[in-house]
Nucleic acid binder design. Sequence first.
DNA 1: CTGCCCTCCGCGAATATTCGCAATTGTACG
DNA 2: CGTACAATTGCGAATATTCGCGGAGGGCAG
Lengths: 146, 146
Amino acid sequence: MSCEADTTALLRSGGRRLTPQRQRVAAALQHAGGHRTVEELHELMAGQPDTPMALSTVYRALTTLKELRLVSEVDAGGRAAFTWVDHSRPHHHLVCLGCGVERDLDPALLRQLGSEIRAVTGFDAFLDHFAIMGECARCRQAAAQT
Amino acid sequence: MSCEADTTALLRSGGRRLTPQRQRVAAALQHAGGHRTVEELHELMAGQPDTPMALSTVYRALTTLKELRLVSEVDAGGRAAFTWVDHSRPHHHLVCLGCGVERDLDPALLRQLGSEIRAVTGFDAFLDHFAIMGECARCRQAAAQT
DNA sequence: CTGCCCTCCGCGAATATTCGCAATTGTACG
DNA sequence: CGTACAATTGCGAATATTCGCGGAGGGCAG
């Protein structure tokens, strides 16, 4: 897969090293899919025949991967959760602060925003995977009746 | 100030109570200005003649205020920092992941995004105070040369 | 005004996350 | 292929943050 080559190249960039631990964390997250907590990933790898990994190493690997924008971090009720970012399929979430429901948002809207920001400020906004807080129509109506 | 009246009304909404602790946390954050860590706020109030406040209470008050969108939370290198949100002057930040520089963004761009999201999905996006991660022009050039 | 209910607070314990340090081990280079 | 250097890991300790519980106190019905 090309993604592996990309990952390798990215991990090597900026004086970083391609270590088995980072590869394993990356692989585990890709394989598991969805949102995974640090604990889940750690246990997942504890089941592997390789040398067990320290929990702090998982944290550090995820931090590194996040800096490279290979994973994104979201808040899952008190503990951190991570997702593998598929750059070939950017998507965004609208999260309702009222009921917690999540729905996807048309990527086109944010793509346009990204272009505008770039045009106005020269800033390259990272909008591959983005969560916007808000309130859904249902909760808004419920709140209005209060 | 009207902000106090607003705060009071907001805090009373949804069956919530206006407690001295919440008022003190809100006041401390408004007075201190800028980004403050929980620890800072706690010490700030420890210097007051009133009854000392438990640290966990500061956390909980800030959580409540955040739910009411009176404060916003940002990540200040491992520990959480909070800012008082001035709804009369919405503003947004572009944060460069490379050099850490922050610059403001024209609110009009996001206001438009908010309208579009609302039109398309019925979702009411909260975009009063928003941070977008990215890379500034300078860092992008530097990275390209690597 | 009085009583009841439900939200909050303080406290201490449980979790989650980060840090410091010495030992390892990728990588670049000769 | 062997060496040198700096990034990384493991481990345990230090921090940061959340939770659960019992007791108070605010606010509304009667």
